[in-house]
Amino acid sequence: MKERGRVIQAFEIFLNRREAGAVISIVFLFTLFTLKNPAFLSLPVIQTILVNGAWIGMLATGQSYTLASGEFDLSVESVFGLAALLFVVFTESISIYASFLLATLIAAGFGFINGLLVTKAEINSLIATLGMLFFGRGIIYLISRGFIRSLSTSTKSSFLPQMLAGAIGGGWSALIIWMIALAIVFEIILFYTKFGNHILAVGSNAESSLSRGISPGLTKWKAFLLCSTIAGFAGMTAASELISVSADLGNGMALKSIAACVIGGCSLRGGRASVIGAVLGAIFLSSLSSGLILMGAPPYSFISFVGLALIGGVMLNKFLLPFLRKKTLPINQVSDFKS
């Protein structure tokens, strides 16, 4: 083995991480926008990017589990919106903690039904969760009748909403902390626990997992449950931050959360995922929108750039990174059995 510099070694390790694509994309965007406008690289801008990316980031955290297990969850955006709305509505009649708990349970109920449909009724998860997306949105309109519902003045300044979305000084919001904390906790669970190992195994090869005594159905079910519960939590942070919840809150977020996951190195086939990567993917999308706004791009054009960034991010993961890895890493020594 020839000697390698520390820096090169560190670079190799970095390239081998699934998150590498998202990190490179973020650095690329920041370089580009900062060259255009040096004000881009500043703490307030970064804080704004993180706050704006926090909800997609949280949804992507849960989504990375369903993807890792080999499924999708499109219903997250409705669960997000519904939990936000219910949280607000419930506080009008019961205590805020009870509201939080009840809305969480209902969010989890969506995951339960998703899991039931996919693993027991064996309906394709794209169809099952799309159905639940529409169903959830309908319930939102039924409850709100299309009107905006807001937290009362006394409720919004109470402890829980402050915990979920309050300012914590220096321009930092609790939303950022929640996004990062969830990412770290669920990254650890995915890669360092038995449960996480089963999620990845089932996503990689359900039949093989079954032959080792792991129930693919039950494991996927847990992934759906987790994904919806996190989406519900994210929705309640949104209610706490926004105070007012409209009936279309969450619209379009599901596909963005999947986009964030894919940019972050999650495979749509399952078995390969990164929670940190998924959150970085969300931060990338948020950086993109902030940068475009700063550069004065027409507001509604943003989504086109999301599309391009998604395709670019996937191409980076698919073509450029493997190419770079081959350039710097020795091919894994293929070894033989003794004869």
Partner: peptide
């Protein structure tokens, strides 16, 4: 069948029978 191709060899050897270092509540 028998192996999850995307997982490391060691995670496959112990698939379904993972060695647990410690338990924190339900988390192994």
């Amino acid at each position: 069948i028998g192996l999850a191709e995307d997982l490391e060899i060691r995670r496959n050897i112990f698939l379904g029978d993972e060695i647990v270092a410690k338990r924190v509540g339900p988390i192994e």
